[in-house]
Amino acid sequence: MIIKAIDTLNEVVGRVVSVVAIVFAAMIIFDVIMRYVFNAPTRWAFDVTKQLYGFYFVMLGGYALRHQSHVRVDLVTETLGNTARRWVEVAGYLIFFFPFAWVFVTRSWDFGMKSWQQGETTYGSVQLPVYPLKLAMAAAAFLLLIQGISEVLKLILGREVPHHDS
Rank of each mutant, 00 (worst) to 15 (best):
I3P: 01
K4H: 12
A5E: 08
N10T: 01
V12Y: 15
V13L: 09
V17D: 10
V19P: 01
V19A: 14
A21D: 00
V23S: 04
A25S: 13
M27P: 04
M27H: 02
I29H: 02
I29V: 15
D31Y: 07
I33H: 04
M34P: 01
P41C: 03
P41M: 04
W44G: 05
V48T: 14
V48K: 05
L52M: 13
M59T: 13
M59S: 13
L60N: 07
G61K: 05
R66A: 13
H70R: 11
V71L: 15
R72L: 12
L75K: 11
T77K: 06
T77L: 08
T77C: 09
T77Y: 10
L80Y: 15
G81N: 14
T83A: 14
T83V: 13
R85W: 06
R85F: 07
R85N: 11
R86E: 04
R86Y: 10
V88W: 14
A91L: 14
A91V: 10
P99R: 12
P99T: 05
P99G: 08
F100L: 13
F100D: 05
F100C: 13
A101P: 03
V103N: 00
W109A: 07
W109S: 01
W109V: 00
W109M: 05
Q117H: 12
Q117R: 13
E120Y: 06
T122V: 10
T122D: 08
V126N: 03
V126R: 01
Q127C: 00
P129V: 01
V130F: 08
Y131M: 00
K134Q: 08
K134G: 00
K134P: 00
M137I: 05
M137V: 05
A140S: 14
L144N: 04
I146K: 00
K154G: 00
L155Q: 06
L157T: 12
E160Y: 07
E160N: 09
E160Q: 10
V161D: 00
V161K: 06
V161T: 11
P162N: 01
P162S: 01
H164W: 00
D165S: 09
S166Q: 05
